[in-house]
Design a protein around this nucleic acid. Structure first.
Length: 904
RNA sequence: GCCGAAGUGGCGGAACCGGUAGACGCAGCAGACUCAAAAUCUGCCGAUAGCAAUAUCGUGGGGGUUCGAGUCCCCCCUUCGGCACCA
């Protein structure tokens, strides 16, 4: 073994060894504890980026760690191969999506292997393989037959110039990204999967996922958006009616207008006879469909001139069309109560609609109640309730009314009161609280057949149709006689033609009459195929289960019961809602199809942060910025080490320093992992990406930081090599160690305990590595070459090789052999155990405070009595000075931590 | 706009359950080695005042709870992620 660390030879040798011995291929083994460690599968975009490196290194650290715990560890890999970028590449470079995708996969597989990930490659697949998506099509057909699938119109972004549907991402400032034309909303028929059937289970299941981050569960809970309310029918003057859903039936008497969506049938009908309304409805069709765009748009409305009748009072209520009411949510109509809803208030204020207060807060209610009890002395209570400095001097008998008037006025001027409270101005419902009013109104309307209690969800059914070529064909044919008919299972897969000319504007499926033409499976007559493809979230919703059943004739087979659920799932936080919700939903579909036997797909979830880097640019004469890659930059610093400026490495021209942002092509701040592997080796890259930040935070790439990791590995290698060259030593006898030896051994065993806890429980890889660095620093100060010293050094180095193995498997593989283990493989060696006897401390250091400020420290036996600690603390010179004769009022002693003397 | 995070030295970060703020790494400064440089090694390294011992301040801003707050509560600011057709 060489004495200096050469990552290239070490890594090539280890990778060759793993490949030759199929080291990470696993089989079901009922006798062993399984561990399924899954990282989100990559989109084959062309080359590995740092986000992949980080994601898969986290997974690999956990996988290798669990293997050293004795588990049968499955870590698979595959490719999320359908999607928009392949079409974009085809447009840009004229390469067919299939060829581009498969080339990328070849290249990226090699890069993953160069990172040394312990992946079972025998299970690999790409989601664009017909052998994969055939099962997805079969599942769709079964769901179709079960009534879980339906077709309805829904709205898409339409580019009127390119005559194509645009993804939200392709709409920039309301215009098509290529044509620049203003985007329009257009309704087209699309397929939907009834995810809302599972809404309640998806919500309840969150409570049974203790291993998922709270942030993800909260976001999913809010996304599902369960609300309990009342569905209520308003009669429309002159015939017809309008259904609304409200979560605030208690505010019913404060309704001053109704608002309906521009696509609402009533709006369309009204617009037919009124050019102004028609103009407004048409204007609402401009722009994209994303919620962010709709919600940030100026809230606009127009009076239809129609009136609804209040279901209790019969009063006439104007009906408005509003651009923020969405046809897709609820009933496409809402009752507006501007006194008690922020958005209704803003709209009413803008269009000068009445604002009627019908709910008051508890303090106002109490003030009124007090007035009733004690009419003489009420001014204080009233002014307190209203929060004003001057008491109102108009009191009884109309004092309660004047409070209400004042309060109602404040709502009109300052804004709505949105919390629950007590009803006023509501006739028979006055004095009720939210629940009482809800119950009373629900009962009344149920009796009248006008309304009913309803649970409403924000969640909408999953639209799975995409008007794109590079995706899994939806296995449906359209027959003039039989309508939409699913393709029979024995005729699947409906294969996507891969050898096609593709301009990017029109899907080859749609422009090829030959591909479309088929026979109706039901009547045998002429029919046409569906030319839409599935949302790519369909493929990524069940791949985890397919990894467990490689080559199965069915979608999933019994082998999955051994591996599922996933023990640890790892991926980006950007997937917190959509992918992870579809993933959970599809698992329930698989369960109800009898294919899996658990309720949730993954027990533990780790969401890693982004990889970010500094940006550098030069501004041209016209102000346009040319972004320069960090790899081509030298940073200059002032005497204190602060960054003073940056220059181009070639030529030395000064450049401007931009923000530190997510690595991206547009800002040219992506650091190529390949370059880093070539320069420093995979172990150093792995180590830095685990050290620089905790996994769930963003990670700033720093080449200087990478060099620091390389230095650490070189030092460690050199120390092991130097030790291996020393003469043999007798076995270590822990009982006879000298104090310095005992101290080092205690640090070793504390580090063993900490690294195991940091990796296994806390997932705090950065602090695990920091503690290993501290241990190496301590070892290098330990110059004892006695027999016991050498034996101890051996224990430290051997443990460190094992503790580092999850992070730097190539170096550990080589160093394990250097330490004399030619017979055993480090991959199968058990994780070291901390020796409790070595951890025992003779003394601990306590902080001593006076009034919460540190005035000294104190060494004491861990079990020293409180009295002794207090006495020792009061004797400290710093404490005496700080007390300065002040009377001690209280002494707080936290054993092993702190003594705080409260004086004054 | 709505939902979810994050903000600590020159920089990345540590402080796990409310108990010595700044571990570890980077950068910087000083020194050793060297003809020199690189590499390596040793020491210093939050701010202010002071020769020093030390004192005061200090975890985005403002308030609060507590013997004690980076950590808990309230309000605010900034940045980031998601918002159903990017994956």
């Amino acid at each position: 073994m060489p004495e200096t660390y050469d990552p290239r030879t070490v890594e090539t040798a280890a990778q060759k060894f793993w490949a030759a011995t199929h080291a990470f291929e696993v089989k079901e083994d009922a006798a062993r504890q399984k561990y399924y460690c899954l990282s989100m599968l990559p989109y084959p975009s062309g080359a590995l980026h740092m986000g992949h490196v980080r994601n898969y290194t986290i997974g690999d650290v956990i996988s290798r760690f669990q293997r050293m715990q004795g588990d049968n560890v499955l870590q698979p890999m595959g490719w999320d191969a359908f999607g928009l970028p392949a079409e974009n590449a085809a447009i840009k470079r004229g390469i067919p999506p299939a060829r581009w995708t498969r080339q990328n996969i070849e290249h990226m597989r090699g890069q993953l292997q160069a990172m040394g990930f312990a992946i079972d490659w025998s299970r690999e697949f790409a989601t664009c393989d017909p052998a994969y998506y055939v099962h997805e099509q079969r599942m769709f057909v079964r769901l179709f037959k079960q009534g879980m699938v339906y077709r309805k119109n829904s709205v898409v972004n339409w580019d009127p110039v390119d005559q194509t549907v645009l993804a939200n991402e392709q709409v920039v400032d309301g215009r098509g990204w290529r044509s620049g034309a203003p985007v329009q909303k257009r309704e087209i028929p699309q397929w939907f999967l009834k995810i809302t059937v599972y809404a309640q289970e998806l919500l309840d299941g969150l409570d049974r996922l203790p291993g998922w981050p709270d942030a993800v569960k909260i976001m999913q809970r809010n996304w599902l958006g369960r609300s309990e309310g009342l569905e209520l029918r308003f009669d429309v003057e002159g015939g017809g009616s309008l259904e609304v859903f409200t979560t605030r039936p208690d505010t019913l008497m404060g309704v001053t207008y109704l608002a309906i969506a521009a696509e609402h049938p009533l709006a369309l009908e009204a617009a037919r006879h009124n050019p102004q309304l028609q103009k407004f409805v048409d204007a609402c069709k401009q722009g994209g469909v994303s919620e962010a765009e709709l919600e940030t748009r100026e809230k606009l409305g127009i009076d239809t001139g129609l009136f609804a009748l209040h279901p209790v009072t019969g009063e006439r209520i104007p009906i408005w069309i509003a651009n923020f009411v969405l046809m897709g949510y609820g009933t496409g109509a809402l009752m507006a109560v501007p006194a008690h809803d922020q958005r209704d208030w803003e709209f009413a204020t803008k269009y000068d609609l009445p604002i009627t207060m019908v709910v008051i807060s508890d303090p106002v209610r109490d003030a009124i109640a007090e007035l009733a009890r004690d009419a003489a002395d009420n001014t204080d209570a009233m002014s307190a309730a209203l929060g004003q400095s001057k008491a109102i001097d108009v009191v009884e008998p109309s004092s309660a009314a004047s409070i209400l008037d004042e309060y109602a006025h404040r709502i009109i001027v300052d804004g709505p009161f949105c919390a629950h409270g007590t009803l006023v101005n509501s006739g028979a419902y006055d004095g009720m609280d939210y629940d009482q009013a809800f119950d009373a109104l629900a009962e009344r309307f149920a009796h009248e057949g006008r309304g009913r209690r309803k649970v409403n969800w924000r969640l909408r059914d999953w639209g799975i149709s995409r008007q794109r070529y590079w995706g899994c064909p939806i296995p449906v044919v359209y027959c003039a006689k039989c309508g939409a008919v699913p393709v029979p299972e024995d005729q699947l897969p409906v294969k996507l033609p891969e050898d096609v000319a593709f301009s990017g504007v029109r899907s080859p499926l749609k422009s090829d009459p030959e591909w479309r033409r088929c026979q109706c499976p039901q009547c045998g007559g002429a029919a046409e195929r569906e030319t839409d493809t599935f949302d790519t979230f369909m493929e990524s919703s069940w791949y985890y289960a397919r990894y467990c059943s490689p080559g199965a004739a069915t979608q999933i087979d019994a082998r999955a019961d051994y591996w599922l659920p996933v023990d640890q799932y790892i991926g980006g936080i950007e997937h917190a809602i959509l992918h992870l919700l579809y993933f959970r939903f599809y698992h329930k579909l698989l369960r109800d199809a009898g294919l899996v036997h658990s309720d949730e797909p993954a027990a533990n979830l780790l969401c890693q942060g982004m990889v970010i880097a500094e940006t550098y640019f030069r501004a041209g004469a016209n102000g346009e910025k040319t972004w320069i890659n960090p790899a081509d930059i030298d940073v200059t610093r002032d005497a204190r080490g602060r960054v003073a400026g940056a220059t181009l490495r070639a030529g030395g021209l000064p450049v401007s320093i931009g923000a530190t942002e997510k690595m991206s092509k547009s800002k040219n701040n992506g650091v190529d992992p390949q370059l880093m592997i070539d320069r420093y080796g995979a172990d150093t890259v792995r180590l830095f990406s685990m050290f620089a930040a905790p996994p769930d935070q963003s990670l700033e790439w720093s080449e200087a930081g990478v060099e620091g990791m390389a230095r650490f590995l070189r030092r460690f290698w050199r120390d092991v090599a130097a030790h291996a060259a020393q003469p043999d030593h007798p076995p270590l006898d822990p009982a006879t160690l000298k104090p310095a030896q005992k101290a080092l051994r205690r640090q070793l065993h504390a580090t063993i305990a900490k690294v195991g806890d940091d990796i296994g429980r806390r997932r705090a890889f950065n602090t695990a590595i920091a503690s290993l660095m501290e241990l190496l620093n301590a070892l290098e100060k330990f110059t004892d070459v006695s027999d016991a010293g050498r034996a101890l050094r051996h224990e430290v180095l051997e443990s460190m090789v094992l503790l580092l193995n999850p992070f730097t498997p190539h170096a550990s593989h080589a160093l394990w052999q250097m330490l004399g283990h030619a017979e055993t493989l480090i991959e199968d060696v058990a994780w070291p155990r901390a020796d409790p006897a070595a951890l025992v401390r003779d003394s601990v250091t306590l902080a001593v405070q006076v009034n919460g400020k540190l005035r000294g420290t104190l060494d004491a036996a861990p079990d020293a009595p409180r009295g002794a600690l207090e006495a020792a603390a009061r004797a400290l010179p710093g404490v005496v000075a700080a007390l300065g004769g002040k009377a001690v009022r209280k002494v707080i002693v936290v054993p092993g931590k702190i003594v705080n003397i409260v004086a004054g």
